[in-house]
Design a protein around this nucleic acid. Structure first.
Lengths: 213, 213, 213, 213
DNA sequence: CATGAATGAGCCTTCATTCAT
DNA sequence: TATGAATGAAGGCTCATTCAT
């Protein structure tokens, strides 16, 4: 009756909805997420969601685009601008990823993509092309440069790229899956530091003598 | 109406149902899996499912227990019986895991657990305790032995265990998530071989000279 | 495998089933009673029920016949044999009914009939004709005799019969409906005694002076 | 597909649903009543029911509250306002109850409560406390006053209250159970009139001479 | 733009009934 | 006779989507 119908248009309604959607999808997964919850958290009516996104799936997809790509672009910038050793670049990239992992919410995406890949192949393809392949190609490029310069032993850059990223994925997944029960949280930074040491020592054509470590 | 009711008890109905459930859960995830589909695939009526399992969730849980534990026990047997070098044991274990990955269906489990962890914390806890922690402890033990004997450099065994398994998880996830679109399938065996090389070279206190490889 | 198939025919299987059915129907009502429970309580398989009764409804009907009619016949015998005053006969009949109520299980029947009357009109009709009308007619006969002899004031025997039985029904219903919560159980015998006093005083053409009571 | 979704909010949807529920529950009993039928009779979709009531049981409970309490309150008002003789008050109350019985639908409640008491003890308790005990206490108070003033013989007010109400319950039950078959309907008003006569004559300390009747 | 009441398809679960053994 | 595994129809409940206001 005396309710505000045409609201003062709190600007960036769409931003609010995406934020709420991220929170709810992250917590429940796609299927179990209810539009009611997303609407409530965005302080918006359920009908309003449909003004901004055509369907639950479209909302999910927009979310993926909005939340993941920026991080990838950051890494691409780092690589492009780099002019030190490949080993140091890999360490630097892991440092960036450590930071990303610390942020929080983004971690939910691998889970979401994994969980919904079969149900929404469309979405999985998008993610694979826009994120996964693109990121792996970036890393493989770094590996290739290291091999070409003689810094690294001759390894398959594609394989090395996957081995580089696997522990990052491991951490993301461990967190959303098991961290709820962990007394002593997994020391993620230390794990990635060890990863950097082992991987780079494994890659280097001329590893430093043991003492140097 | 005129369908056979008291069937000749095609033996191991429960086995059939679990197999069907694995297939359907793997494809759809828990929420989207329909009991109708599971029943149809098991060539059984929907009601029959309830003769063997109390609920959809109970069926899921039984599935996890039945399908995953045997593989873990196989690895435990391998470790216990081993008396060669730690590096060789790690290679051997990766060989076993490569085989497991090749089998197929089991790969679906990480996905399922990951996808349903928030919805069924109960299940995630079970999996973490019965599978994840148990497996990591097994690997960490191997690492520890290698460090103690001087074969490996002094690394944190817990971290090393996670780094050891991360690429295996990566492969499992990649497959169920993206393999549907892959023209050239990911060469999983080669990836794990490279993993073994890099990791072991990273771990060894006295890596062999470059030429040896 | 080595289970007794053709059981030593514990005689009167049908009696066992009826007893079990009474217990379960009384507790759950018709719709909520499960044949599984009846079979279990009768220590018989579910299939066996169908050897003795065509359907759940048929079992229910057999139960009504078997459990209620004997009591009515007992009352009819009492009336036929009576040769005292009508007032004393009414008291006697209430005494018998008090005993019947004390027994227990029978009390469940009014509830069952009431609950299922719409669903099984067939059954309600049976009960009305075989039990209710027959019982009321019996009581109305007693009333009529009392009026004819001048012992009672001229009341409508049909109405009086209903008023006579109403408190008995009240008790049966109260018990199965509310007695579960009662701290101090309803004193049923006292209630029926008061009923006898008030009703007979109301009926008598020449009530005794106040002091006599 | 092309049906009206956001309906013009035909006011008092909840009232419609309750009315439909009363009709269907009365006819079928709780268990056999289908929400489909209730929704259809309310000219509402099944989903809409859940906008107003959390569950079938909650709907049932709301129904009990909404339909029964007003009548009880009416009686309480009558008693409070009364300043004539107790006998006249009892007659008056029976008159009110006769009217209530004539209305119709309410009669279904005793049946419903009786039928579902075991299945929903929660509901039975509610009814017993909010309706039965409250009503009996009201009547017992009237009896007590009559005894205290010397108008009535010294009877147990609690017992007398039950005897007062028993024929009303009898009528309600008879109607929903058997009236479907009755050629000549039970003359309910006459029955309650006879009840008033007999009961009050039984209660009065100084009954009027026979002729006065 | 925004609302939120209304919709209805879809799915898990129960249980009376059947029938090969 | 007796069994009990198997069936499948039926119904309560959820939630993405629509649309009159």
């Amino acid at each position: 009756m005396a309710r505000p119908r045409g609201r003062p248009a709190k600007e960036n309604r769409s931003r609010d909805i995406l934020a709420a959607a991220l929170a709810v999808f992250a917590e429940k997964g796609f299927a179990a997420a209810r539009l009611d919850d997303i609407a409530a958290r965005a302080e918006v009516s359920k009908g309003t969601l449909y003004l901004y996104f055509d369907s639950k799936e479209a909302l999910f997809e927009a979310l993926v685009r909005a939340a993941v790509l920026p991080n990838l672009e950051r890494l691409e910038g780092l690589v492009t601008a780099w002019n030190g050793s490949s080993a140091a670049l890999l360490r630097q990239m892991l440092g960036v990823l450590t930071g990303v992992l610390r942020e929080g919410r983004i971690t939910a995406f691998p889970k979401l993509i994994i969980a919904e890949a079969t149900t929404f192949p469309h979405l999985a393809r998008l993610y694979r092309e826009q994120v996964a392949e693109r990121g792996l190609k970036l890393i493989a490029g770094v590996m290739e440069r290291g091999v070409a310069s003689g810094e690294f032993r001759p390894v398959d850059p594609t394989a090395a790229a996957r081995l580089f990223i696997a522990p990052v994925l491991f951490i993301a997944i461990w967190r959303v899956t098991f961290a709820q029960f962990d007394d002593r949280k997994l020391d993620e930074a230390a794990l990635l530091a060890t990863h950097a040491d082992l991987l780079i020592r494994g890659l280097l054509a001329h590893p430093p003598p043991e003492a140097a470590r």
